[in-house]
Design a protein around this nucleic acid. Structure first.
Length: 297
DNA sequence: GCCCAGGTGAAGC
DNA sequence: GCTTCACATGGG
C-alpha cells in the first residue's frame, strides 16, 4: 500500500542539482537558496539535495512518483557511467570539477522545442525566451499556497495556433518559423515523436533532422536529453572549443573530424562525457579564453 | 562599437 | 562536394 503524500525522498549519492540544472540541458529550473523549483509535465516540483538523498515536494498528494524518478534518473549508477569515460587528463579534470552532474530524462517535445530556440543564443537568453513562451501560451499548473504561479510548457497543438509574429514577440527572432512549422507538423500528426523510441540512434537522428530548424546538433541534444541515447554527442561551439583545445592544441581539425573523433574516443556514454566537457569548458574564464594546456602538453 | 552565443538552411563556388 | 552567408537579439 502506497499512500499519497506531497513529499518524497529518493536515495541518491553523487547528485549535484546545481550542476545538473545549470549545465544547459534544461532551461526552466529556478533556484531559491538550496531549493530548486520547476515544472515537469503539468506538475509543480520543488527539490533539494542532501548528502545521500533528494527530497521532492509537489503541489498535490502523489502516490506514484515514478515520473520524477525517471526524470531525475535517480536509479542511475553514476560511478559505473564515469568509469566508462576515457582515462585522460581532460576528462579527469572535468569529472573532478563537477562530479554529481547528471543527465535528466526530459519530455521529448519540450526538449525539442527548447533546443530549436537555442541556436546561436546564450543560455540566459534561451531561458528568457522559454519563460516568455510558457508564460504566454502554457497552462497554469497547481502550486502550493504562497508560491509563485507557474505554467507548463505549451503543447504542440497550442503553439501551432500562434501567429508567427506573436512568437517573434517572445524574442525568438528567426527561430520562430522553425518552431511554428515543427509544432504544426507534430500537432497535425505528420511527425510522431513517440515513434523515435523504437528506432536505432542513426535512424532516429535522421528522422529528427527532417524537421525544420533541426540539424545534427539539435537532433543529438534531443536524443541525449529526452530519449536517453547514451552515444548521442551534440557538438556546439563550446564542445568544439573543448575538443580542439584539450585534444588537438595548435592543429586545424575540421568539424566532421571532431565528430568522428568524439564517436570513437568517448565510449558508450559519450553523451554523458560531452555534458561534463561542455559544463567544465563554460564555467571557467581561463578555459573559455583558451589559456588551458592541452592533454599531453 | 564589437564579438559572440548549446545552429541551420540556402546560396555560391 | 565544400565554404560562406543571413537570420534576431542581447550579454559581456
Amino acid at each position: 500500500m502506497t499512500s499519497a503524500a506531497r513529499t518524497q525522498s529518493f536515495p541518491a549519492r553523487d547528485y549535484d542539482l546545481t550542476a545538473t540544472f545549470t549545465s544547459g540541458q534544461t532551461f526552466r529550473w529556478q533556484r531559491q537558496g538550496s531549493h530548486w523549483t520547476g515544472v515537469i509535465g503539468n506538475r509543480w516540483v520543488r527539490l533539494h539535495a542532501d548528502s545521500c538523498s533528494i527530497v521532492a515536494e509537489t503541489a498535490q498528494p502523489t502516490a506514484d512518483w515514478s515520473w520524477l524518478a525517471d526524470y531525475l534518473q535517480v536509479h542511475l549508477d553514476l560511478g559505473a557511467v564515469l568509469q566508462t569515460f576515457p582515462q585522460d587528463e581532460p576528462m579527469r579534470a572535468a569529472v573532478s570539477a563537477y562530479r554529481g552532474l547528471r543527465l535528466l530524462r526530459q519530455d521529448p517535445w519540450e526538449c525539442l522545442a527548447s533546443f530549436i530556440l537555442s541556436s546561436t543564443k546564450q543560455i540566459t537568453q534561451i531561458q528568457q525566451i522559454i519563460s516568455l513562451l510558457c508564460g504566454r501560451y502554457g497552462e497554469a499548473v497547481a502550486v502550493p499556497a504562497a508560491h509563485d504561479s507557474i505554467c507548463a510548457f505549451p503543447s504542440p497543438a497550442r503553439l501551432a495556433q500562434v501567429p508567427e509574429a506573436e512568437l517573434r514577440a517572445c524574442k525568438m527572432g528567426f527561430r520562430a518559423p522553425f518552431l511554428l512549422a515543427t509544432a504544426r507538423s507534430i500537432a497535425e500528426g505528420q511527425f510522431d515523436l513517440r515513434r523515435l523510441h523504437s528506432l536505432p540512434l542513426e535512424a532516429a537522428r535522421a528522422e529528427l533532422m527532417t524537421l525544420p530548424g533541426v540539424g545534427r546538433k539539435i537532433a543529438d541534444c534531443v536524443l541525449l536529453f529526452a530519449f536517453g541515447c547514451p552515444r548521442a554527442f551534440p557538438v556546439d561551439v563550446w564542445v568544439t572549443k573543448a575538443l580542439r583545445q584539450l585534444y588537438f592544441p595548435r592543429r586545424q581539425v575540421r568539424p566532421a573530424a571532431l565528430q568522428e573523433f568524439a564517436g570513437a574516443h568517448f565510449g558508450p556514454n559519450a553523451g554523458y562525457a560531452q555534458q561534463y566537457l561542455f559544463h567544465y569548458m563554460r564555467t571557467s574564464r581561463s578555459r573559455r579564453d583558451g589559456r588551458l594546456q592541452g592533454s599531453g602538453a
